[in-house]
Design a protein around this nucleic acid. Sequence first.
DNA 1: TTGACTTAACTAATGCCATTAGTTAAAATT
DNA 2: AATTTTAACTAATGGCATTAGTTAAGTCAA
Lengths: 191, 191
Amino acid sequence: MSPRPKTSLDMETIIRTAADLADRKGFGDVTLANLAKELNIKSPSLYNHVDGLPGLKKQLAIYGINNLYQALEDAKENFSKKDVVLALSIGYVGFARKHPGVYEATFNAPDPSDSEVQDAGSKIVGLVLDSLGAFGLEKEEALHAVRGLRSLIHGFCSLEQKGGFGLNLSLNESLSFMVEAFMAGIAARRC
Amino acid sequence: MSPRPKTSLDMETIIRTAADLADRKGFGDVTLANLAKELNIKSPSLYNHVDGLPGLKKQLAIYGINNLYQALEDAKENFSKKDVVLALSIGYVGFARKHPGVYEATFNAPDPSDSEVQDAGSKIVGLVLDSLGAFGLEKEEALHAVRGLRSLIHGFCSLEQKGGFGLNLSLNESLSFMVEAFMAGIAARRC
DNA sequence: TTGACTTAACTAATGCCATTAGTTAAAATT
DNA sequence: AATTTTAACTAATGGCATTAGTTAAGTCAA
């Protein structure tokens, strides 16, 4: 048999296809074999574009973090300044719901300390830090607050995705409740 | 070659060995092959005790949830009534740090809706609900509060384990900060 | 005690996966 | 037009889970 033409494939479509695969079949089904099938090539050919499965997962993580950042920027734009934090939270959770596989990829990079991954992530920290400006916190307090917010929202998404919430109770109400409670506690700190 | 005697192995040691493996090498290294090596048997022999890899992971999840419950009960005992929630949080995080692999197994059961898994988990919800009694919340509010607390603490553990917190700032202080902020927000609700 | 049954180990084989090595032809460059 | 680079390919290896079939140790009833 003859090798196929070289035109079709570029990094962009590879990652996009992988992201699609992740969201449709789950992050666990992101394999070189499955991805190759969707791209109509053989899996060893992927090594011409990506540094094995770990390399693919790293790229997918960065792609996901960047898209999440975009989603947060959009959420920030489209809502009033008053409830920025709630808007951000809803935007974050909305992204995780719409892109469960990509969201999972986001914090499953093979090496989280990789500088590219780290850099993508710190842009998000910056954005949240900025949105917290109105609360007039000390520098350290603000960093603790960002960590808290991330923990709260990421924990919510993670538990929601893994089916950790068994009860018959609105998830969206839980989300508003916990974000508002947390922010109320933060606000009370100013006194 | 001859099959080996039947005396040695029981379910208890299998799960304990798997838990040890998880904590030493990571949850991702919990494979039938690795577990069999540690038990000095061949991997197909494990099928006499466990329903394949998914069955093993289910058992490990239940084991982990039950141990986490124990850790929380201990934490509750050993601290004053005043800061039960902070004590619980510290106990929870302490368990996750001491048993990272088992903790990860805890929310990676193959089927989270499985009733055994669900039951083990709802014991924890009950314990936390109970500890929240002092705050005098409405029933629904209390459930939202439990979800919030779980999200907060699980999110913290998850991000800590995955290296999600890059900054040079005390993690323990972040933990106290976020738990206290959240609980202050909850307490403010009574008015 | 002996014989039948059950059980928990085994070996062998299958299929899927990632990965490496080596090949080939299309595309790009000189 | 010739050469180089590139991106596909096939073939092969080793690790994994899993299934099927085998065997001998342990259990238990006659």
